[in-house]
Design a protein around this nucleic acid. Structure first.
Lengths: 142, 142
DNA sequence: AGCAAGTATATGGACCAGCTTATATAAGTC
DNA sequence: GACTTATATAAGCTGGTCCATATACTTGCT
């Protein structure tokens, strides 16, 4: 299964967003997704399996729980694919540079990579049929 | 239709790759895709329509041809979604910085954004069921 | 051992994306 | 106007993805 196919599903994207904040148990992920998408536990388990098998997530067992974590490798591949299009937007390289500065600032605060920083607001791209919040704003804010 | 759904199809990704080198006629795109994927003209036309309607491509007519071009906006959205994962890979920000330097070098050469720079080698991620060329190499080469 | 909690797998059905064949539209050419 | 080239649309088929229901497995508790 291709990386983009995996990311094509809104549930899987949501799970990955949750995992971006650090490890999580299958149970917690299931609860959130159930609440937001109204699907059953087996359905979520299926998605977790896809994420595992496609390399987007790693699991480890701890007692009777299973802890999931992001594996960024496939995401990096996607990132590299996008590389060829970056020159198309904004002030070309300037935006990237500014982005680095912004990220560095944030980095000083976050420091410990994976663990619940304040829950981020819903991403526009995430929800399936959202009213397209279309925040080009975000980039200029960088 | 969600951005990732659009990119989930290998044919559409290939078309976008071709368009990354600049405008192209529907005919040329069709020929390449037909050769590589063995699908018919109407099938390609369908994909072009999806790209149009999802905002990934713009068209303009010129005589009886239709010229397609990338519209990077949705790709930028994808790029922003990936933002939260960038900290997971490599020397964190260092890779990004190096990337800027590399891009600037290349920028001096390219200068005119859209038009046929040497056809890039097949991307690993592009083909549907490729033997996963897995070129992490590319990143370290940046 | 027996039971509950946590999570995964099996099965069967609905729906949808993408394909092919056939055909339409539009613009040039004779 | 008839014909060709370039591209899009229509109709119908098919396989695969995702879901729910039902069930199995594993670990911890008593």
């Amino acid at each position: 299964m291709n990386a983009f196919d995996v990311l094509g599903d809104p549930v899987r994207r949501r799970i990955l967003e949750l995992l971006a904040d650090g490890e999580s148990t299958a149970g917690r992920l299931t609860d959130v997704v159930r609440a937001e998408f109204g699907i059953t536990q087996p359905a979520v388990s299926r998605h977790l399996r896809v994420l595992r098998e496609s390399g987007f997530a790693d699991v480890r067992s701890e007692g009777r729980r299973r802890l999931y974590a992001v594996n960024a490798e496939p995401l990096q591949e996607v990132d590299m694919w996008l590389q060829r299009y970056r020159r198309f937007w904004e002030g070309r390289l300037d935006a990237l540079e500014t982005e680095i500065r912004r990220a560095r600032r944030q980095d000083r605060v976050a420091r410990t990579p994976p663990h619940p920083p304040p829950p981020s607001p819903e991403s526009a791209i995430t929800r399936a049929a959202s009213p397209e919040t279309h925040d080009t704003a975000r980039l200029s804010r960088l």
